[in-house]
Design a protein around this nucleic acid. Sequence first.
DNA 1: GTCTATACTTGGATAGAC
DNA 2: GTCTATCCAAGTATAGAC
Lengths: 199, 199
Amino acid sequence: MTRQGTDTRERIIAAAIETLREEGFAGTTAREIARRGGFNQALIFYHFGSVANLLLEVFGSTSDEQVARYREAAAKVASLSDLVAIARSLHDEDLRSGAVAAVTQLMAAASNPDEGRAILDRFEEWILLVQEALGKAMSGPLEAVVPTRQAAYAISAMFLGIELLTHLDSHRSEADAVFDMMAALAQLVEQLTPMLLPQ
Amino acid sequence: MTRQGTDTRERIIAAAIETLREEGFAGTTAREIARRGGFNQALIFYHFGSVANLLLEVFGSTSDEQVARYREAAAKVASLSDLVAIARSLHDEDLRSGAVAAVTQLMAAASNPDEGRAILDRFEEWILLVQEALGKAMSGPLEAVVPTRQAAYAISAMFLGIELLTHLDSHRSEADAVFDMMAALAQLVEQLTPMLLPQ
DNA sequence: GTCTATACTTGGATAGAC
DNA sequence: GTCTATCCAAGTATAGAC
């Protein structure tokens, strides 16, 4: 059992992630992935059928991994402030890894409806994670007014948008200030919530 | 003065918009634009230098036009509910025109920093428009707590995210429900604002 | 399963006639 | 300013040896 033979698929996925991060979506071609991974370009088609397929699996694989990591943190959420803190740390992580930014590129580049739906299916896990955390973050009276599903959808969309904008010019990004604002807003809501009478 | 000679640039831009809307970003190639517009592919390079340049001008041109149209509506905003209503109608419009969805694709595909900055410069107008409307929508005490710049940035980002997700599968999009939620939230905030004492 | 080699396609871009 | 013709690069994908 040679070192090479063990798992070429894994090597390909790893090389694709690296390429995605360092070259962006447009630069992530079969040739470039193969060059970085030090294997033959034909292997991508043998193992995954197409580059688009490979990228879908990459999204699935990194997504599963990240969801698993953040699920623990999400379970501990007890307030909106906690939720903002998690969003901020995910953003910070993404400045380095570019994982979410890559997802936005994948979404934007989705050419056919099937591909779009496949990506959406994967993203659904993220929305559910946010929804779960949101359920814990919002206490009684607030929850009665704000449907968690839609709020989770809106928050997830906002996060995507922020990463999209940040990716355009990370130096000019206002993400930090936005998270500050959200943190202040979360505190305010937390103070006001007791005044909301259950109707 | 032949019909053709008058303004080829305009014809090219129009054809590019049509292509963008119907074929998506990936399908918007020099050849396809020319085919739709019924002119020669070489003209694109003569007039715009490159396809990427053409698309930047398209973004600028449609953006200017839309900002002008929405500026009037934004000036009349008097409450958060008004702002939500505008966002909803912009979304409805985008379901047909795909203009914002095209912008998200342009953003995601930006390959080099210069292109990214150019797009961001154009998008800045949109953020300012939202910020202006937000200034009118939030009355005294609320404005003191929520910085309009960051809120406008967050709202703009959320809108981009929603269009990105909607574009993946418009049939499954939850945008409508999200706008409903926002409308309810806006009403709630409007009711509670008087209770915010200026600190 | 992996490699080499290569066919095929598409799309950006330019030269040069008109 | 517009057209025809063409070049060139890049990328997907496959055939066939190993």
